[in-house]
């Protein structure tokens, strides 16, 4: 579904991605782990068109997407739920969710997806008239995930969905990710909680200073000595 070959990207003169390659297949959950500053978030930004690709190739659904604007990628099913949630704090919960469905024109499908989000996160249904900014951190993350779902993604890029949340809420979010995956959404997950991510994912990539260090099945990475020492704190 997604194929990245020798991708290079950065901000101005600073090159952050120094030729990374990875693939995500239909139906998979793939996780990208690594230390802070390894380039995980930049990878996602490059995939979703926020950061310009300076070298290499990215193909999504068989098409080269280098230079395709971010808003067009959403239309094609590549949806990015960014780090730090980035919800619209002065729009209501409902309006935030509507924005998720911005590119869609199928009112019936939208209504079904909205019902599904409210089913997965009942708290959002309760607060749908409330401004997004008044929600707690956990609720905001639920909203961010729900909003991304409203775009009916084929490939969902999730950046640090557990950041700063209580364990119970993290568990809930991961449960939803698993359900999304079951319903056919392909997921590329960036997580600093490597253990949880690897337990959830089918495959994983380990990044270090802008390059892919390791690539393997998630279960294998969980057993890998280097990974255990560096990222699982054992």
């Amino acid at each position: 579904m997604l194929r990245v070959e020798q991708a290079r990207a950065g901000y101005g003169a600073v090159e952050v991605l120094r030729g990374i390659s990875l693939t995500v297949d239909e139906g998979e959950i793939v996780t990208l782990i690594g230390a802070n500053g390894a380039g995980k978030t930049t990878t996602l930004h490059t995939l979703s068109g926020l950061v310009q690709l300076t070298g290499g190739r990215i193909t999504f659904l068989g098409e080269n997407i280098a230079g395709v604007p971010a808003h067009e990628l959403v239309r094609r099913g590549l949806v990015h739920a960014p780090e730090g949630r980035k919800i619209f704090s002065r729009l209501t919960v409902l309006e935030n969710l509507e924005m998720g469905a911005y590119t869609r024109r199928d009112p019936d499908g939208i209504a079904r997806d909205l019902a599904r989000v409210f089913e997965l996160f009942p708290i959002l249904a309760e607060r749908r008239r409330q401004a997004g900014g008044t929600l707690s951190g956990g609720e905001q993350q639920m909203l961010a995930v729900g909003r991304a779902m409203m775009a009916r993604p084929r490939l969902l890029l999730l950046d640090e969905p557990s950041l700063g949340l209580a364990p119970l809420i993290v568990a809930r979010i991961f449960e939803v990710i698993r359900e999304l995956s079951k319903s056919g959404v392909t997921i590329l997950l960036v997580e600093q909680n490597a253990r949880m991510a690897l337990r959830l994912a089918h495959r994983g990539y380990v990044m270090e200073t802008g390059a892919i260090l390791l690539a393997d099945a998630a279960s294998a990475l969980l057993e890998n000595e280097t990974v255990r020492a560096a990222y699982l704190g054992e």
Binding site: V74, K86, S89, M99, Y102
Partner: peptide, 14 residues
């Protein structure tokens, strides 16, 4: 309104 509040997120909404 969404763009005014968060242009980056707005782009990610399509």
């Amino acid at each position: 309104r969404a763009t005014a509040q968060n242009p980056l997120a707005a782009r990610l909404m399509g």
